[in-house]
């Protein structure tokens, strides 16, 4: 009895955070979503979401968030794996995070310079013989810079999962005659799924609402739900519509959580059975 009370005292700050900074803002957003510009109660915002360009925006947001997550994973997994094999792995890991502490807007301006027609990247392409390419304002530049932003968020949890991997397991698998691919598929990957899953969550969810990069790097040729919300709040001053889009974004997030959750239950059950 006593102990469980003690435990609940400890969790007060977290509970308070959920109440004040999660539930209260959500209540506010849901409340605003039922009002139009003149301050009258209405369901028009919701109707508007389904009848207009917003569905198209939703699909494109999901598609790009998917691409960003996929490429982040493809690049982050081997990186994390190789870092665990280096001599000073903690240091290398920190060196992965440090670039993310320099202001994003500045780095984005640097990317505009780097990827520009007269930038170093194009100079390289020309020297190799490929010739000048329009890199900025394309799908490529958008996904590239987004992956750049999110990569530390993907590497960290995967590194943590790989780092504690018992090398004896891998040796055992090798001794039993499994080739590298089989060892990876049957031994390494299943043991790191928890880390990978956190990585996917911290990349995919924020990627849905990316906004600044869509303008600076994609030249507004890619528009996401985040951009639309930002416009509604700041430019059009239509907080009702902005809130409505946000409500949908949150609902989508809940659905994603539900879908990925089904698997995690199994994983933790496995852990307990062990």
């Amino acid at each position: 009895m006593n102990k469980s009370r003690l435990r609940s005292i400890y969790s007060i700050p977290y509970t308070a955070w959920i109440l004040l900074f999660v539930l209260a803002p959500i209540a506010l957003i849901v409340y605003y979503s039922f009002f139009d510009l003149a301050g009258n109660f209405t369901l028009a915002n919701y109707r508007n979401f389904f009848t207009s360009v917003y569905l198209k925006l939703t699909i494109s947001s999901f598609w790009y968030a998917f691409l960003i997550t996929l490429f982040s994973l493809l690049i982050a997994y081997p990186t994390a794996y190789l870092i665990t094999k280096t001599k000073h792995k903690q240091l290398w890991l920190l060196l992965i995070i440090i670039p993310s502490w320099i202001n994003l807007l500045l780095k984005t301006y640097a990317f505009i310079g780097l990827m520009g027609l007269y930038g170093p990247l194009n100079a390289f392409l020309e020297a190799v013989g490929i010739g000048k390419q329009q890199i900025l304002f394309t799908d490529f530049s958008f996904v590239f810079v987004s992956v750049y932003i999110f990569i530390p968020f993907m590497i960290l949890p995967i590194f943590n999962a790989l780092d504690k991997l018992n090398p004896a397991l891998i040796d055992a698998s090798r001794d039993l005659g499994a080739d590298s691919w089989t060892t990876f598929r049957r031994v390494i990957w299943p043991l790191t799924t928890n880390g990978v899953k956190s990585g996917i969550q911290v990349v995919f969810i924020p990627a849905l609402s990316l906004f600044m990069i869509t303008r600076l790097i994609a030249g507004n040729k890619i528009i996401t739900l985040g951009t639309a919300i930002e416009q509604q709040f700041l430019v059009t001053q239509n907080w009702g519509m902005g809130s409505t889009i946000a409500v949908f974004l949150i609902v989508f997030m809940f659905i994603i959580m539900l879908v990925t959750k089904g698997k995690e239950k199994g994983a933790s059950d496995n852990g307990k059975a062990r």
Binding site: Y109, G116, L136, F137, R215, L216, G219, N220, K221
Partner: peptide, 12 residues
Amino acid sequence: VKAVIGDEVTQL
């Protein structure tokens, strides 16, 4: 139209 952007246009 090459792009629709904001203040970054100066640098470009």
